[in-house]
């Protein structure tokens, strides 16, 4: 099992990320735990992903950097607030773990899984799908500069291959 969560966490700490907003996913379990335990970060548990966009807008105006961690099934919940992010050119760094791909057991996850990347891109977010766990940390590191120096909106999408398969006990 790779240590990609540690890699990403180290990048976030080095980048000075202070607000770590999330809606949980099994694939994000370790990364969320690391953020929650980090003194320099405030972990913000959200009720829906779109809160995260609005929260990070406020964070940025207050001088703090943030990250939004979520699963792909929540992309549909974000589209309204992505207009805020775009209209105001708010920096946005998203870590999106995928559902509806590799060995997905729950077919209801498939419709959003198939289109999450396209939805994000059509809403003005540059989204790249990473399939190699060793490449996830570097991909987030590469996103930090464009996001926080140039107000870019970037989603690093982590392919479902990277995670253990969720089987519902089967």
């Amino acid at each position: 099992m790779s240590e990609w969560a540690e890699d990403v966490f180290d990048v976030l700490v080095s980048a000075g990320v202070r607000q770590a907003a999330y809606v949980p996913d099994m694939g994000l379990k370790r990364l969320i735990e690391l953020c929650r335990a980090e003194d320099s970060m405030t972990a913000v548990s959200l009720t829906t992903e779109e809160e995260g966009m609005a929260l990070l807008c406020g964070a940025w105006m207050g001088g703090e950097r943030g990250v939004l961690m979520m699963q792909s099934s929540g992309v549909g919940n974000c589209l309204n607030m992505l207009s805020l992010t775009r209209a105001c050119e708010i920096p946005l760094l998203m870590i999106v773990t995928m559902r509806g791909q590799h060995q997905e057991f729950n077919s209801w996850q498939n419709p959003m899984g198939e289109h999450a990347q396209g939805f994000l891109e059509s809403a003005g977010v540059s989204a790249s799908m990473i399939e190699d766990s060793a490449a996830i940390g570097p991909a987030v590191a590469d996103a930090v500069g464009p996001v926080f120096d140039d107000n870019a909106r970037i989603a690093i999408m982590v392919h479902q291959k990277v995670f253990p398969t969720k089987t519902f006990g089967k």
Binding site: R18, Q19, T42, V44, E50, E51, G52, M53, A54, L55, L56, C57, G58, A59, W60, M61, G62, G63, E64, G66, N80, M81, S83, L84, A87
Partner: peptide, 22 residues
């Protein structure tokens, strides 16, 4: 002042981000 022209439903979350940062 941060008056919103859109983002309906987001005002309180924007305020939370500001409150945490400041």
């Amino acid at each position: 002042n941060f008056p919103l022209w859109g983002a309906m439903g987001g005002a309180a979350a924007i305020g939370l981000g500001l409150a945490l940062a400041k």
